[in-house]
Design a protein around this nucleic acid. Structure first.
Lengths: 212, 212
DNA sequence: GTTATGTTTGACCAAATGGTCAGGAACACG
DNA sequence: CGTGTTCCTGACCATTTGGTCAAACATAAC
């Protein structure tokens, strides 16, 4: 009790704030490009412009940096899904979701690859989050989609697989960026404009409710 | 000349064949689960039931095992695409392609993850293959699809993005297996039957040529 | 059986890597 | 200023890891 009197959480110093941010940004850069095991603390330190012992002054371990990244970014990552509104016009809602996810693949490819790397390896550092945090959200949104189907406002689809398809189609442009760009090298320098057209068309056609 | 007289490639011993296979299978298991950097030679050795020095008797380095895997599996991996036939019925050809790719995700998830891991990291050990080997094939098949579009036999789509969508949608079920199974835990124990129905429906609706 | 070839391993090495620590430098604050 | 706190670093350590090697062991062929 008395021990708790002194401020339990000291506010961050100016320097702490700057360095925490620099480190997390560097860690995102390196982890997303090489995976957890493939990244070295030295690489992160160099990317952040700090010394290795200095990194470990701010984070107790490599693992801690990784965890801080995953948990810190998950919210942002799921924002577009959270915005899916049961009260909106179904097809427009889903198209907006697709557009926002694609935009995130364009603007935040490192985050996409960070999660992809993690899940690819069986998500050892993510299992809990998947089941406890992601699943309830997905169950909720899948329920919304099921309702839309039952009301005949979109074509009949399995809601979970619809969500999977949005994820895979949009994140593909971040996660497999090199492949996409290699194959499109002499066709389109920037894949995203055409990707948006393609995906909007795909979901529009697939979801259009059966006439009659 | 004279030096070449003695058989340039000795035929594989019985033991060599057995161990080469055991090692490559073990390497596939470990590399696909942990990535190149995350895999250790010891793990592969244990998985193969051999000692580490013994592995390195059959392959000169960890890198060599990885390369042998990638190049050896690429052909199999691209078989379904190669089978896409310009002379077939367009939508049926594409649906067959989708089904075969999905079947490969089910039967060969390790191979899928191996490639995914590699491309995710910028494909340092795959760049050449992508440009020299995959690209010509994809250019060819994209040409077929473009022709189908021009002939009005399928709805207008950007051929490359159509191929990307087949890849991402099908491989998602192998690469993100844990996520898929976690989210579907209390819905469907085996995601694949429903996945096939969903994907067939998706591509059927999207590709149906415009009436009139 | 002898010999040549192919196979296996324990012991070992150098480099890389995550992490520690004692002490020094910079800073905040009275 | 001076002093307590925060910040930073060079040197160091233990472990892991890819790879080597000499010598032992198995196998096939004559």
């Amino acid at each position: 009790m008395k021990a708790q009197r002194t401020k339990p959480r000291k506010p961050e110093t100016r320097i702490q704030k700057r360095n925490h941010e620099a480190i997390l940004d560097a860690a995102l850069e390196v982890f997303s490009a090489r995976g957890f095991r493939g990244a070295t603390v030295d690489q992160i330190a160099q990317e952040a412009g700090l010394s290795k012992p200095n990194l470990l002054y701010y984070f107790p371990s490599k693992e801690a940096m990784h965890t801080a990244l995953l948990t810190g970014l998950l919210d942002t990552w799921l924002d577009p899904l959270r915005a899916l509104d049961a009260g909106g016009e179904p097809i427009e809602e889903i198209l907006t979701y697709v557009r926002r996810k694609l935009e995130m693949s364009r603007q935040m490819p490192r985050e996409s690859r960070l999660f992809a790397n993690e899940i690819l390896q069986g998500g050892p550092r993510l299992h809990g989050v998947l089941a406890d945090y992601l699943k309830p959200l997905v169950d909720d949104k899948a329920g919304i989609i099921r309702t839309w189907v039952e009301e005949g406002r979109i074509a009949p689809v399995q809601p979970y697989h619809l969500l999977f398809s949005v994820w895979s189609l949009t994140q593909h442009y971040a996660d497999f960026d090199i492949q996409v760009r290699t194959l499109l090298a002499d066709v389109e320098p920037d894949p995203f404009p055409e990707a948006e057209r393609y995906l909007v068309s795909l979901f529009t056609r697939m979801l259009a409710p059966d006439a009659g």
